[in-house]
Design a protein around this nucleic acid. Structure first.
Lengths: 214, 214
DNA sequence: TCTCCTTGGTAAGTGCCACTATCCAATCAT
DNA sequence: ATGATTGGATAGTGGCACTTACCAAGGAGA
Protein backbone atom coordinates (compact mmCIF):
# COMPACT_ATOMS: atom_id res chain seq x y z
CA UNK A 1 0.00 0.00 0.00
CA UNK A 2 1.07 3.58 -0.55
CA UNK A 3 1.38 6.34 2.01
CA UNK A 4 -2.09 7.65 1.23
CA UNK A 5 -3.64 4.27 1.96
CA UNK A 6 -1.58 3.86 5.10
CA UNK A 7 -2.94 7.22 6.17
CA UNK A 8 -6.50 6.23 5.29
CA UNK A 9 -6.42 2.90 7.12
CA UNK A 10 -4.74 4.27 10.22
CA UNK A 11 -6.61 7.54 10.43
CA UNK A 12 -3.31 9.37 10.72
CA UNK A 13 -2.75 12.28 8.33
CA UNK A 14 -0.21 11.79 5.56
CA UNK A 15 1.81 14.74 6.83
CA UNK A 16 2.06 13.16 10.26
CA UNK A 17 3.16 9.84 8.80
CA UNK A 18 5.89 11.65 6.90
CA UNK A 19 6.88 13.24 10.16
CA UNK A 20 7.08 9.84 11.88
CA UNK A 21 9.14 8.46 9.00
CA UNK A 22 11.50 11.38 9.32
CA UNK A 23 11.75 10.87 13.07
CA UNK A 24 12.48 7.19 12.62
CA UNK A 25 9.35 5.93 14.37
CA UNK A 26 8.37 4.07 11.24
CA UNK A 27 10.82 2.17 9.05
CA UNK A 28 10.88 3.50 5.48
CA UNK A 29 8.73 1.73 2.94
CA UNK A 30 10.09 -0.40 0.13
CA UNK A 31 11.17 2.10 -2.48
CA UNK A 32 9.56 1.30 -5.82
CA UNK A 33 10.89 4.29 -7.69
CA UNK A 34 11.85 7.83 -6.80
CA UNK A 35 8.28 8.91 -6.14
CA UNK A 36 6.63 5.78 -4.81
CA UNK A 37 7.17 3.66 -1.74
CA UNK A 38 5.29 0.55 -0.71
CA UNK A 39 4.16 -0.08 2.86
CA UNK A 40 2.77 -3.29 4.34
CA UNK A 41 0.65 -4.53 7.24
CA UNK A 42 3.66 -4.42 9.52
CA UNK A 43 3.95 -0.69 8.93
CA UNK A 44 0.28 -0.26 9.72
CA UNK A 45 0.65 -2.19 12.93
CA UNK A 46 3.73 -0.25 13.96
CA UNK A 47 1.98 3.00 13.16
CA UNK A 48 -0.95 2.06 15.38
CA UNK A 49 1.44 1.17 18.18
CA UNK A 50 3.19 4.52 17.80
CA UNK A 51 -0.12 6.34 17.84
CA UNK A 52 -1.27 4.46 20.92
CA UNK A 53 1.94 5.33 22.71
CA UNK A 54 1.76 9.00 21.77
CA UNK A 55 -1.95 9.66 22.09
CA UNK A 56 -3.04 7.34 24.86
CA UNK A 57 0.26 6.89 26.65
CA UNK A 58 1.42 10.49 26.10
CA UNK A 59 4.91 9.25 25.44
CA UNK A 60 7.11 11.89 23.78
CA UNK A 61 8.30 11.12 20.27
CA UNK A 62 11.94 10.78 21.31
CA UNK A 63 10.97 8.18 23.94
CA UNK A 64 8.88 6.26 21.44
CA UNK A 65 11.93 5.96 19.21
CA UNK A 66 13.97 4.73 22.16
CA UNK A 67 11.38 2.14 23.18
CA UNK A 68 11.04 0.84 19.65
CA UNK A 69 14.81 0.53 19.44
CA UNK A 70 14.78 -1.80 22.43
CA UNK A 71 11.75 -3.68 21.20
CA UNK A 72 13.45 -4.39 17.89
CA UNK A 73 16.79 -5.30 19.40
CA UNK A 74 16.85 -9.10 19.58
CA UNK A 75 20.24 -9.11 21.27
CA UNK A 76 18.90 -7.72 24.54
CA UNK A 77 18.00 -9.89 27.53
CA UNK A 78 14.43 -10.64 28.35
CA UNK A 79 13.99 -8.40 31.39
CA UNK A 80 15.51 -5.50 29.50
CA UNK A 81 13.21 -5.90 26.53
CA UNK A 82 10.21 -6.41 28.75
CA UNK A 83 11.16 -3.43 30.82
CA UNK A 84 12.20 -1.24 27.89
CA UNK A 85 8.90 0.55 27.73
CA UNK A 86 8.72 1.23 31.41
CA UNK A 87 12.10 2.84 31.51
CA UNK A 88 11.21 5.21 28.77
CA UNK A 89 7.99 6.42 30.33
CA UNK A 90 7.46 10.08 31.16
CA UNK A 91 9.79 11.00 33.91
CA UNK A 92 9.50 13.36 36.73
CA UNK A 93 12.39 15.81 37.19
CA UNK A 94 15.29 14.40 39.20
CA UNK A 95 14.69 14.54 42.94
CA UNK A 96 16.93 17.05 44.70
CA UNK A 97 19.05 14.88 47.00
CA UNK A 98 19.71 17.76 49.35
CA UNK A 99 16.03 18.44 49.96
CA UNK A 100 15.05 17.25 53.42
CA UNK A 101 11.64 16.05 52.23
CA UNK A 102 13.29 13.98 49.55
CA UNK A 103 15.57 12.38 52.11
CA UNK A 104 12.68 11.49 54.39
CA UNK A 105 10.76 10.10 51.43
CA UNK A 106 13.73 7.92 50.49
CA UNK A 107 13.93 6.53 54.02
CA UNK A 108 10.22 5.78 54.08
CA UNK A 109 10.40 4.01 50.77
CA UNK A 110 13.37 1.95 51.88
CA UNK A 111 11.34 0.92 54.93
CA UNK A 112 8.45 0.09 52.66
CA UNK A 113 10.53 -2.10 50.36
CA UNK A 114 11.98 -3.92 53.37
CA UNK A 115 8.58 -4.50 54.83
CA UNK A 116 7.25 -5.84 51.55
CA UNK A 117 10.31 -7.96 50.90
CA UNK A 118 10.83 -6.41 47.47
CA UNK A 119 14.49 -7.28 47.36
CA UNK A 120 14.87 -6.93 43.63
CA UNK A 121 13.25 -3.52 43.51
CA UNK A 122 15.55 -2.46 46.32
CA UNK A 123 18.58 -3.29 44.24
CA UNK A 124 17.24 -1.14 41.43
CA UNK A 125 16.67 2.03 43.45
CA UNK A 126 19.76 3.76 42.13
CA UNK A 127 18.68 3.43 38.51
CA UNK A 128 14.93 2.91 38.43
CA UNK A 129 12.86 5.84 37.14
CA UNK A 130 9.86 4.37 38.97
CA UNK A 131 11.72 4.68 42.24
CA UNK A 132 12.62 8.27 41.51
CA UNK A 133 9.03 9.15 40.63
CA UNK A 134 7.85 7.62 43.85
CA UNK A 135 10.35 9.64 45.84
CA UNK A 136 9.25 12.88 44.18
CA UNK A 137 5.56 12.18 44.75
CA UNK A 138 5.93 11.11 48.38
CA UNK A 139 8.14 14.13 49.06
CA UNK A 140 5.49 16.39 47.53
CA UNK A 141 2.89 15.05 49.97
CA UNK A 142 5.16 15.60 52.93
CA UNK A 143 6.09 19.09 51.81
CA UNK A 144 2.41 19.96 52.06
CA UNK A 145 2.26 18.65 55.59
CA UNK A 146 0.63 15.32 54.84
CA UNK A 147 2.48 12.19 55.88
CA UNK A 148 2.52 9.35 53.38
CA UNK A 149 4.77 6.90 55.15
CA UNK A 150 5.40 3.21 54.79
CA UNK A 151 2.34 2.23 56.81
CA UNK A 152 0.02 4.14 54.46
CA UNK A 153 1.89 3.10 51.33
CA UNK A 154 2.10 -0.59 52.13
CA UNK A 155 -1.51 -1.53 51.36
CA UNK A 156 -1.32 0.41 48.08
CA UNK A 157 1.92 -1.34 47.20
CA UNK A 158 0.30 -4.68 48.00
CA UNK A 159 -2.53 -3.94 45.57
CA UNK A 160 -0.12 -2.71 42.88
CA UNK A 161 1.88 -5.89 43.25
CA UNK A 162 -1.20 -7.93 42.57
CA UNK A 163 -1.81 -5.75 39.56
CA UNK A 164 1.70 -6.46 38.30
CA UNK A 165 1.12 -10.18 38.75
CA UNK A 166 -1.99 -9.87 36.60
CA UNK A 167 0.02 -7.93 34.02
CA UNK A 168 2.65 -10.63 33.71
CA UNK A 169 0.14 -13.48 33.79
CA UNK A 170 -1.70 -11.85 30.91
CA UNK A 171 1.54 -11.25 29.07
CA UNK A 172 2.46 -14.92 29.36
CA UNK A 173 -0.73 -15.97 27.63
CA UNK A 174 0.60 -14.45 24.41
CA UNK A 175 1.82 -17.15 22.11
CA UNK A 176 4.92 -15.75 20.45
CA UNK A 177 7.84 -13.95 22.03
CA UNK A 178 7.31 -11.00 19.69
CA UNK A 179 3.72 -10.71 20.84
CA UNK A 180 4.80 -11.00 24.45
CA UNK A 181 7.25 -8.12 23.98
CA UNK A 182 4.64 -6.00 22.29
CA UNK A 183 2.14 -6.87 25.01
CA UNK A 184 4.69 -5.82 27.62
CA UNK A 185 5.13 -2.48 25.88
CA UNK A 186 1.39 -2.04 25.79
CA UNK A 187 1.14 -3.26 29.35
CA UNK A 188 3.56 -0.62 30.48
CA UNK A 189 2.17 2.16 28.34
CA UNK A 190 -1.50 1.51 27.77
CA UNK A 191 -2.24 -0.33 30.96
CA UNK A 192 -1.55 2.74 32.97
CA UNK A 193 -4.27 4.83 31.36
CA UNK A 194 -6.58 1.84 31.85
CA UNK A 195 -5.64 1.54 35.51
CA UNK A 196 -5.90 5.28 36.00
CA UNK A 197 -9.30 5.36 34.41
CA UNK A 198 -10.50 2.39 36.46
CA UNK A 199 -9.15 4.02 39.58
CA UNK A 200 -10.98 7.24 38.85
CA UNK A 201 -14.17 5.40 38.01
CA UNK A 202 -13.84 3.46 41.24
CA UNK A 203 -13.35 6.69 43.13
CA UNK A 204 -16.48 8.13 41.59
CA UNK A 205 -18.37 4.97 42.44
CA UNK A 206 -17.15 4.87 46.01
CA UNK A 207 -17.60 8.60 46.58
CA UNK A 208 -21.21 8.51 45.45
CA UNK A 209 -21.82 5.33 47.46
CA UNK A 210 -20.65 7.13 50.56
CA UNK A 211 -21.96 10.62 50.00
CA UNK A 212 -24.58 10.34 47.27
CA UNK A 213 -24.68 12.48 44.15
CA UNK A 214 -24.72 15.77 46.07
CA UNK B 1 6.50 38.12 53.80
CA UNK B 2 7.37 39.73 50.51
CA UNK B 3 7.48 38.07 47.11
CA UNK B 4 11.22 37.49 47.37
CA UNK B 5 10.80 35.58 50.62
CA UNK B 6 7.87 33.60 49.25
CA UNK B 7 10.16 32.65 46.38
CA UNK B 8 13.00 31.73 48.74
CA UNK B 9 10.87 29.55 51.02
CA UNK B 10 9.04 27.77 48.21
CA UNK B 11 11.99 27.35 45.89
CA UNK B 12 9.92 28.84 43.06
CA UNK B 13 11.50 31.70 41.14
CA UNK B 14 10.07 35.17 41.64
CA UNK B 15 9.23 35.44 37.95
CA UNK B 16 7.23 32.22 38.11
CA UNK B 17 5.33 33.43 41.17
CA UNK B 18 4.46 36.60 39.32
CA UNK B 19 3.26 34.43 36.46
CA UNK B 20 1.05 32.39 38.81
CA UNK B 21 -0.36 35.58 40.31
CA UNK B 22 -1.14 36.85 36.85
CA UNK B 23 -2.79 33.55 35.95
CA UNK B 24 -4.89 33.61 39.09
CA UNK B 25 -3.38 30.48 40.66
CA UNK B 26 -2.36 32.50 43.67
CA UNK B 27 -4.54 35.18 45.28
CA UNK B 28 -2.85 38.59 45.30
CA UNK B 29 -1.00 39.60 48.44
CA UNK B 30 -2.16 42.31 50.78
CA UNK B 31 -1.11 45.52 49.07
CA UNK B 32 0.97 47.69 51.42
CA UNK B 33 1.77 50.41 48.95
CA UNK B 34 2.18 50.63 45.22
CA UNK B 35 5.43 48.70 45.22
CA UNK B 36 5.04 46.27 48.10
CA UNK B 37 2.68 43.39 48.81
CA UNK B 38 2.56 41.15 51.83
CA UNK B 39 2.04 37.37 51.56
CA UNK B 40 1.31 34.90 54.35
CA UNK B 41 1.61 31.21 55.17
CA UNK B 42 -1.60 30.50 53.30
CA UNK B 43 -0.01 31.80 50.11
CA UNK B 44 3.00 29.58 50.68
CA UNK B 45 0.78 26.56 51.20
CA UNK B 46 -1.26 27.33 48.11
CA UNK B 47 1.90 27.86 46.10
CA UNK B 48 3.21 24.44 47.15
CA UNK B 49 -0.09 22.85 46.20
CA UNK B 50 0.04 24.53 42.80
CA UNK B 51 3.62 23.36 42.25
CA UNK B 52 2.74 19.81 43.26
CA UNK B 53 -0.16 19.78 40.82
CA UNK B 54 1.93 21.17 37.97
CA UNK B 55 5.22 19.37 38.52
CA UNK B 56 4.18 16.05 39.98
CA UNK B 57 0.64 15.84 38.68
CA UNK B 58 1.44 17.44 35.31
CA UNK B 59 -1.81 19.35 35.46
CA UNK B 60 -1.93 22.26 32.99
CA UNK B 61 -2.12 25.73 34.46
CA UNK B 62 -5.65 26.34 33.20
CA UNK B 63 -6.85 23.15 34.90
CA UNK B 64 -5.14 24.09 38.14
CA UNK B 65 -7.08 27.36 38.13
CA UNK B 66 -10.30 25.44 37.54
CA UNK B 67 -9.63 22.93 40.32
CA UNK B 68 -8.76 25.67 42.79
CA UNK B 69 -11.96 27.46 41.88
CA UNK B 70 -13.97 24.40 42.90
CA UNK B 71 -11.88 23.83 46.00
CA UNK B 72 -12.52 27.36 47.17
CA UNK B 73 -16.22 27.35 46.34
CA UNK B 74 -18.01 26.57 49.59
CA UNK B 75 -21.38 26.57 47.90
CA UNK B 76 -20.75 23.32 46.02
CA UNK B 77 -21.91 19.93 47.22
CA UNK B 78 -19.54 17.50 48.80
CA UNK B 79 -19.18 15.03 45.94
CA UNK B 80 -18.55 17.85 43.54
CA UNK B 81 -15.83 19.39 45.64
CA UNK B 82 -14.28 16.02 46.36
CA UNK B 83 -14.44 15.16 42.70
CA UNK B 84 -13.36 18.57 41.45
CA UNK B 85 -9.77 17.56 41.01
CA UNK B 86 -10.53 14.34 39.20
CA UNK B 87 -12.68 16.04 36.63
CA UNK B 88 -9.96 18.46 35.79
CA UNK B 89 -7.27 15.87 35.27
CA UNK B 90 -5.47 15.52 31.95
CA UNK B 91 -7.94 14.29 29.43
CA UNK B 92 -7.60 12.07 26.49
CA UNK B 93 -9.08 13.33 23.21
CA UNK B 94 -12.80 12.61 22.82
CA UNK B 95 -13.47 9.06 21.64
CA UNK B 96 -14.82 8.94 18.11
CA UNK B 97 -18.30 7.47 18.53
CA UNK B 98 -18.36 6.18 14.96
CA UNK B 99 -15.21 4.15 15.38
CA UNK B 100 -16.05 0.47 15.59
CA UNK B 101 -13.34 -0.20 18.16
CA UNK B 102 -14.73 2.54 20.36
CA UNK B 103 -18.19 1.00 20.15
CA UNK B 104 -16.91 -2.43 21.12
CA UNK B 105 -14.94 -0.90 23.97
CA UNK B 106 -18.07 0.84 25.22
CA UNK B 107 -20.01 -2.41 25.21
CA UNK B 108 -17.29 -4.23 27.07
CA UNK B 109 -17.10 -1.53 29.69
CA UNK B 110 -20.85 -1.59 30.15
CA UNK B 111 -20.62 -5.33 30.69
CA UNK B 112 -17.83 -4.75 33.16
CA UNK B 113 -19.76 -2.18 35.17
CA UNK B 114 -22.76 -4.51 35.28
CA UNK B 115 -20.67 -7.39 36.42
CA UNK B 116 -19.06 -5.31 39.16
CA UNK B 117 -22.32 -3.75 40.22
CA UNK B 118 -20.95 -0.25 39.83
CA UNK B 119 -24.37 1.32 39.41
CA UNK B 120 -23.29 4.85 40.25
CA UNK B 121 -20.41 4.81 37.82
CA UNK B 122 -22.79 3.53 35.16
CA UNK B 123 -24.99 6.55 35.59
CA UNK B 124 -22.00 8.82 35.11
CA UNK B 125 -20.78 7.33 31.83
CA UNK B 126 -22.17 10.14 29.72
CA UNK B 127 -20.22 12.80 31.58
CA UNK B 128 -17.30 11.18 33.32
CA UNK B 129 -13.86 11.87 31.86
CA UNK B 130 -12.62 8.70 33.53
CA UNK B 131 -15.10 6.68 31.53
CA UNK B 132 -14.02 8.34 28.31
CA UNK B 133 -10.36 7.70 29.04
CA UNK B 134 -11.12 4.07 29.70
CA UNK B 135 -12.96 3.76 26.41
CA UNK B 136 -10.07 5.29 24.49
CA UNK B 137 -7.49 3.06 26.13
CA UNK B 138 -9.47 -0.16 25.73
CA UNK B 139 -10.21 0.72 22.10
CA UNK B 140 -6.49 1.30 21.52
CA UNK B 141 -5.73 -2.23 22.72
CA UNK B 142 -8.36 -3.72 20.51
CA UNK B 143 -7.23 -1.72 17.50
CA UNK B 144 -3.86 -3.41 17.87
CA UNK B 145 -5.48 -6.80 17.88
CA UNK B 146 -5.34 -7.47 21.58
CA UNK B 147 -8.58 -8.12 23.40
CA UNK B 148 -9.04 -6.40 26.71
CA UNK B 149 -12.58 -7.36 27.55
CA UNK B 150 -14.62 -7.41 30.71
CA UNK B 151 -13.17 -10.72 31.89
CA UNK B 152 -9.61 -9.35 31.77
CA UNK B 153 -10.59 -5.94 33.11
CA UNK B 154 -12.66 -7.18 36.04
CA UNK B 155 -9.80 -8.25 38.31
CA UNK B 156 -8.03 -4.96 37.64
CA UNK B 157 -11.19 -3.04 38.42
CA UNK B 158 -11.58 -5.03 41.62
CA UNK B 159 -8.09 -4.01 42.71
CA UNK B 160 -8.67 -0.39 41.74
CA UNK B 161 -11.86 -0.35 43.75
CA UNK B 162 -9.97 -1.48 46.81
CA UNK B 163 -7.49 1.29 46.10
CA UNK B 164 -10.31 3.82 45.97
CA UNK B 165 -11.62 2.52 49.30
CA UNK B 166 -8.18 3.10 50.78
CA UNK B 167 -8.16 6.61 49.28
CA UNK B 168 -11.44 7.56 50.88
CA UNK B 169 -10.62 5.91 54.20
CA UNK B 170 -7.43 7.93 54.34
CA UNK B 171 -9.26 11.07 53.35
CA UNK B 172 -11.75 10.59 56.18
CA UNK B 173 -8.98 10.53 58.76
CA UNK B 174 -8.34 14.21 58.06
CA UNK B 175 -9.79 16.31 60.83
CA UNK B 176 -11.22 19.38 59.12
CA UNK B 177 -13.38 19.60 56.03
CA UNK B 178 -10.88 21.96 54.43
CA UNK B 179 -8.14 19.39 54.96
CA UNK B 180 -10.36 16.63 53.62
CA UNK B 181 -10.98 18.63 50.45
CA UNK B 182 -7.30 19.34 50.02
CA UNK B 183 -6.51 15.69 50.69
CA UNK B 184 -9.01 14.70 48.03
CA UNK B 185 -7.34 17.01 45.54
CA UNK B 186 -4.00 15.51 46.42
CA UNK B 187 -5.50 12.06 46.40
CA UNK B 188 -6.72 12.59 42.87
CA UNK B 189 -3.64 14.35 41.58
CA UNK B 190 -0.67 13.14 43.58
CA UNK B 191 -1.92 9.66 44.38
CA UNK B 192 -1.79 8.74 40.77
CA UNK B 193 1.92 9.32 40.38
CA UNK B 194 2.37 7.34 43.60
CA UNK B 195 0.25 4.49 42.32
CA UNK B 196 1.94 4.57 38.94
CA UNK B 197 5.34 4.49 40.53
CA UNK B 198 4.36 1.64 42.85
CA UNK B 199 2.90 -0.22 39.91
CA UNK B 200 6.10 0.15 37.91
CA UNK B 201 8.23 -0.83 40.88
CA UNK B 202 6.03 -3.87 41.40
CA UNK B 203 6.42 -4.76 37.74
CA UNK B 204 10.17 -4.53 38.03
CA UNK B 205 10.08 -6.65 41.16
CA UNK B 206 7.83 -9.28 39.63
CA UNK B 207 9.67 -9.36 36.29
CA UNK B 208 13.02 -9.96 37.95
CA UNK B 209 11.47 -12.53 40.27
CA UNK B 210 10.23 -14.45 37.28
CA UNK B 211 13.04 -13.95 34.81
CA UNK B 212 16.01 -12.74 36.86
CA UNK B 213 18.10 -9.70 36.04
CA UNK B 214 18.95 -10.85 32.55
C1' DT C 1 18.63 66.38 48.73
C1' DC C 2 20.63 63.10 45.55
C1' DT C 3 21.85 58.82 44.23
C1' DC C 4 21.23 53.92 43.90
C1' DC C 5 19.07 49.75 44.92
C1' DT C 6 14.93 46.94 45.48
C1' DT C 7 10.07 46.05 44.79
C1' DG C 8 5.97 44.39 42.36
C1' DG C 9 3.85 44.66 37.92
C1' DT C 10 3.61 44.15 32.69
C1' DA C 11 4.68 42.99 27.98
C1' DA C 12 7.25 40.59 25.04
C1' DG C 13 10.31 36.80 24.17
C1' DT C 14 12.10 31.83 24.62
C1' DG C 15 12.36 26.96 24.01
C1' DC C 16 10.23 22.85 23.36
C1' DC C 17 7.36 19.85 20.87
C1' DA C 18 4.00 17.67 17.93
C1' DC C 19 2.55 18.43 14.20
C1' DT C 20 1.21 20.95 9.49
C1' DA C 21 1.56 23.73 5.27
C1' DT C 22 4.05 24.62 1.26
C1' DC C 23 7.04 23.38 -2.40
C1' DC C 24 9.18 20.50 -5.58
C1' DA C 25 10.51 17.26 -9.16
C1' DA C 26 9.31 12.68 -10.67
C1' DT C 27 5.81 9.73 -12.22
C1' DC C 28 1.20 7.90 -13.11
C1' DA C 29 -3.54 7.91 -15.33
C1' DT C 30 -6.13 9.05 -19.13
C1' DA D 1 0.21 15.61 -23.65
C1' DT D 2 -1.31 17.13 -19.45
C1' DG D 3 -3.17 17.40 -15.08
C1' DA D 4 -3.23 14.95 -10.76
C1' DT D 5 -0.66 12.43 -7.37
C1' DT D 6 3.44 10.73 -5.04
C1' DG D 7 7.17 10.90 -1.52
C1' DG D 8 10.46 13.93 0.30
C1' DA D 9 12.45 18.33 2.22
C1' DT D 10 12.01 22.75 4.59
C1' DA D 11 10.00 25.96 7.09
C1' DG D 12 6.14 27.45 9.75
C1' DT D 13 2.34 26.99 13.48
C1' DG D 14 0.22 26.91 17.92
C1' DG D 15 0.17 25.81 22.59
C1' DC D 16 2.30 26.14 26.87
C1' DA D 17 5.19 27.03 30.87
C1' DC D 18 7.92 29.84 31.92
C1' DT D 19 11.78 34.04 31.62
C1' DT D 20 13.73 38.20 30.36
C1' DA D 21 13.70 42.98 30.03
C1' DC D 22 11.92 46.86 31.38
C1' DC D 23 9.29 50.23 34.23
C1' DA D 24 7.81 53.59 37.76
C1' DA D 25 7.36 53.89 42.75
C1' DG D 26 9.42 53.60 47.10
C1' DG D 27 13.17 53.17 50.58
C1' DA D 28 18.07 53.71 52.46
C1' DG D 29 22.48 55.67 52.93
C1' DA D 30 25.72 59.77 52.02
Amino acid sequence: MRLAELSERSGVSAATIKYYLREGLLPPGRQINTTTAEYDEEHLRRLRLVRAMIQVGRVPVAKVREVLGHVDDDSLGRSVRLGAAMWALPQVPEPDEDDEYVQVAQQEITTLLDRLGWENAKQLTSISPAYRSLVVAVAAFRRLGYGFGAELLAPYAELMHRTAVLDLDNMETQSSEAERIEWAVLGAILNEPVLQALHRLAQEEETTRRYGFE
